[in-house]
């Protein structure tokens, strides 16, 4: 019985801790286009064309995330996003997946280490000797190399994470088209999902 109570307490504690993460808004901009040129095609007959690849600009998408303004229900004071991001530091993980991408096409994405800009640019947290979550930096997955993005409505893969609010994070894409892929223009959706955590 004690074990159940203990377990329940742990779960509740974890849930309450999660609930303390404040809501924020993810913003993604950019006119993304990845175009294969003649020079991007394989040069050896018999080889699948997915052994070659082609890239977008390094900033095909720009990702930003800031906390929403907060309303104090007692005083009705509003804390704006800048102040909210100054006072509340969380860790954010960014996951990506695509929807309805062409078949036989691999889409990869990456950003570079510590890309983007801290928001606000400088806050007291940055000057603490041993900040709880570490510096307000951006950390890439896979050493900053390209990561294949799942083309699945329910599965996303983590591409990077950062501490605190952050803006202007550039995302670059790379495509590998098999010879089996249909030629021409394909249009599909890239979905970004961001999750916060206290740890």
């Amino acid at each position: 019985m004690k074990i159940y109570v203990f377990t329940l307490l742990l779960v509740l504690l974890a849930t309450i801790s999660r609930a303390q993460i404040l809501p924020g808004t993810l913003n993604v901009t950019g006119a993304s286009n990845i175009t294969q040129s003649i020079n991007d095609l394989i040069q050896e007959a018999g080889v699948d064309d997915n052994e070659s690849s082609f890239e977008s600009n390094f900033d095909a998408n720009i990702v930003s995330f800031i906390l929403d303004p907060l309303l104090n229900p007692l005083t009705l004071d509003i804390t704006d996003s800048e102040q909210a991001c100054t006072l509340n530091i969380f860790r954010y993980s960014v996951y990506m997946h695509t929807l309805n991408a062409p078949q036989n096409l691999i889409i990869e994405a990456k950003t570079s280490l510590n890309s983007g800009v801290r928001y606000p640019f400088s806050i007291p947290y940055d000057n603490t000797v041993d900040p709880i979550l570490g510096p307000r930096d951006l950390y890439t997955q896979n050493g900053g190399q390209y990561i294949p993005i799942p083309n699945d409505p329910s599965v996303a893969i983590k591409v990077f994470e950062f501490i605190g609010c952050r803006t202007d994070i550039p995302i670059q894409f790379r495509a590998k088209a098999s010879s089996l892929a249909i030629s021409g223009t394909g249009n599909f959706q890239v979905v970004y999902t961001i999750l916060g955590s206290l740890f």
Binding site: I21, L22, P23, G24, T25, L26, N27, V28, T29, G30, S32, N33, I34, T35, Q36, S37, I38, D40, L41, A60, N61, F65, F90, Y92, T98, L99, A101, P102, L105, I107, F173, A175, A177, A181, I182, S183, G184, T185, G186, N187, F188, Q189, V190, V191, Y192, T193, I194, L195, G196
Partner: peptide, 14 residues
Amino acid sequence: GGDQKSISLTVDIQ
């Protein structure tokens, strides 16, 4: 405390 956004991506294959 998360969010989700999607954006279009176009690929031109030769």
